[in-house]
Design a protein around this nucleic acid. Structure first.
Lengths: 206, 206
DNA sequence: CTTTTGACTTTGTAACTAAAAAAGTCAGGA
DNA sequence: TCCTGACTTTTTTAGTTACAAAGTCAAAAG
């Protein structure tokens, strides 16, 4: 298997693993299967990654990064109002969630060494939170929203409330597949949008 | 074991089971232990309840009822403002949750026959939702809040957002013990109160 | 010197099993 | 009507094995 450099092969492995993980799940995917997909030996995988968890984490890091970049684009898009941007984050988030709900994030978090994982997850949450803050601040700067004492805090409430609503909608919290039916998802989005509209209305000058 | 009537003995059983269930948990409590606590035979328990699940459900029904009655009192208490009443529901709910988090509600919901259980849970949720609606309506009647198009819908958003926030705060959703540390609980309540204050501010005339 | 591999060892998991514990039953007694 | 001891049935648990998957390494290939 010839590749330009080490990083490219790492990417190819992550890509193959991502395909298997999202189709089936991480625990139902073997290192052998990933190797077969790449027409290489299993031992090669271990040349690029210390263990399977490392692959799993790399996969999550990759899709997490693309998610955050999508959000970032939305946060900085001054073409639309801040209120609309906030609305759009709901769709982006839910779309991402349904696409990657089979990635067993929670499972990994429990078994992967806490230091390595938990910090990254926290960092990602922080980044997402900061992006919400940024959108709110953009709204204040443009005069769309009234100046508020603590945009950071406000974004935190909004973030937790929207995230929480999703959890409140899956009635079997200890189930492994964190999937939502289409009907549930529609209901959830409706409620999230309503919640957000109340927030935004409170932020608008009147 | 002599008792006045059938209902009293049922109550005594429920009381004993409640003690064990909250101390340890439902699955770690045997029918024998409950019988021993009551100085009666296990067979007696089966005279009053068809099976263990029925005891578990009765326990949940009892504490659920007392919880809903506490909320009801708060909803009808016109001594305090509607805004304050809503604030108080947060404390009532969280207090109740921490007291009875070892009751394995979710576990029961999965195994107990759906018809019997799920309907009751749904009914309880509906009642709680209605109480929130009632408080909001009280606020409108008293002139504290502006008239809003759909108080029922608004209460639903608030209810789901507050409930969801709690879920968002327990980082191990598939853990069986749904306990929150003191620090987490304090943070949660702070955020819930802030969320509510935003809601209430939006409802106030200005 | 970097990358790859087949053959290897170790570790984890699914499928049985037997023993124990708990659930649940019932004929008969107060 | 209420209660119980002695009983049967069902569920958990702890051990076991057998297989699959994880992970290692010396040596080959480029």
């Amino acid at each position: 298997m010839h590749t330009e450099n080490k990083d490219e092969m790492r990417d190819r492995i992550i890509e193959a693993a991502l395909k298997r993980f999202t189709h089936f799940s991480a625990s139902k995917t073997t290192m052998n299967e990933i190797a077969e997909d790449l027409h290489c030996s299993k031992a090669s995988l271990y040349y690029y990654f210390p263990d399977k968890n490392a692959v799993h984490i790399a996969v999550l890091a990759k899709i997490g990064e693309s998610y955050l970049q999508t959000l970032e684009k939305e946060a900085n898009n001054s073409e639309v109002s801040a209120g609309e941007s906030l609305m759009n984050t709901i769709k982006i988030r839910n779309n991402f969630m349904t696409r990657f709900c089979r990635l067993e994030i929670f499972k990994l978090m429990r078994q992967a060494s806490f230091e390595a994982m938990n910090n990254e997850v926290k960092a990602a949450k922080k980044r997402e939170w900061d992006l919400m803050t940024r959108i709110i601040e953009r709204g204040i700067e443009s005069g769309e929203f009234v100046a508020v004492a603590d945009p950071q805090e406000l974004a935190g409430i909004l973030f937790h409330a929207l995230m929480g609503m999703r959890l409140a909608f899956m009635d079997h919290p200890q189930q492994f597949t964190e999937e939502l039916s289409d009907a549930q998802l529609a209901d959830l989005e409706m409620k999230q949008e309503l919640l957000l509209s109340i927030f935004v209305k409170g932020l608008k000058k009147n």
